Simulated assay, not measured.
Amino acid sequence: MRGLRREFGGRAVIDGLDLTVAPGEFVALLGRSGCGKSTLLRVLAGIDLDVAGAVSVPRRRAVAFQEPRLLPWKRVWRNVALGLRGEDARGRVLAALDEVGLDHRVDAWPLTLSGGEAQRAALARALVREPDLLLLDEPCASLDALTRLRMQALIADLWERHAPAVVLVTHDVDEALALADRALVMSDGVISEDVAIHAARPRRPADPEILALRAHLLELLGVPTPAAS
């Protein structure tokens, strides 16, 4: 993205933003509510096209939202298969469901799934398209603490196996530090901070490097911490 601008009612939510994501790179996007993170993700997904500036994204891209957005009248495998073509479509769907641990829920109705299962089905629907760019809009936000940790571990595992570039929108600094190569802070319509995370995976929350980055990011986001004070 170069010089990206998106206005709503004459007010610029994104204002001259530049962003480069390398192939296979995992980027987490942080920022206060209303700073434009989800708008930026919709632009990358091709959902929002009313923008100025230059945007270049891979043709193969997929998005998973905070809400799983499963069609309740279609069984799980048919939700994952939406838009897929080819004789091997069902086989690819079954393989994707197996990868996210839902091989036993292939023929289930969406309303019978737990929150974590529904989110995993949405992730399978994104991954079955073999995207070069995977866009995640707070996929763990509505999950309980234990399920959130399991989902984060699953996302990390699937990223390592499939190696797409990932842009993750999140409010959770700990999630960004656990998963990403870079944490970007968005404010005033631009990327105001770009923080590289070099700690080895799997990341340990008690790692001094992670603790220092956590304090730094929270301070940037206006959240005081004992370390920052």
Rank of each mutant, 00 (worst) to 15 (best):
M1Y: 12
M1I: 14
L4T: 11
R6V: 15
F8C: 03
F8K: 03
F8S: 01
G9E: 06
R11E: 10
R11Y: 00
R11I: 06
V13G: 04
V13D: 04
G16Q: 04
L19A: 05
T20V: 13
T20N: 11
G24I: 08
G24Y: 03
E25N: 11
F26Q: 07
V27Y: 01
L29T: 08
L29G: 10
G34E: 03
L41W: 05
A45V: 00
I47N: 04
I47P: 02
D48R: 01
D48W: 01
D50K: 14
A52C: 07
A52H: 14
G53D: 07
G53W: 06
A54N: 12
S56F: 00
S56T: 13
V63K: 02
A64Y: 02
A64L: 07
F65D: 04
E67F: 09
E67D: 15
L70D: 00
W73V: 00
W73Q: 03
V76R: 02
V76C: 01
W77S: 13
N79S: 08
V80R: 02
V80P: 02
A81E: 14
L82Y: 12
G83V: 10
G91R: 14
G91K: 01
R92I: 09
V93S: 03
L94C: 00
L94A: 06
L97A: 06
E99I: 01
L102D: 04
D103C: 11
D103L: 10
R105I: 05
V106S: 03
V106N: 10
D107E: 14
L111I: 00
L111G: 00
S114E: 12
G115E: 10
E117R: 02
R120Y: 07
L123S: 06
R125D: 06
R125Q: 12
L127D: 05
L134E: 14
L134N: 14
D137K: 05
A141R: 03
L143Y: 11
R148L: 08
L149S: 13
L149T: 15
A153W: 00
W159C: 12
W159R: 10
H162Y: 13
H162G: 11
P164W: 08
V166S: 11
V167N: 12
V167D: 07
L168C: 08
V169A: 02
V173I: 02
A180L: 04
R182K: 15
A183M: 15
L184A: 09
V185P: 05
M186A: 07
S187I: 00
S187H: 11
D188K: 11
V190C: 13
I191K: 13
D194R: 10
A196F: 15
H198M: 03
A199L: 00
R201C: 10
R204A: 12
P205Q: 12
L211E: 15
R214F: 09
L217Q: 13
E219S: 13
L220K: 14
L221G: 06
L221I: 06
G222S: 03
V223T: 11
T225P: 13
P226S: 01
A227Y: 03
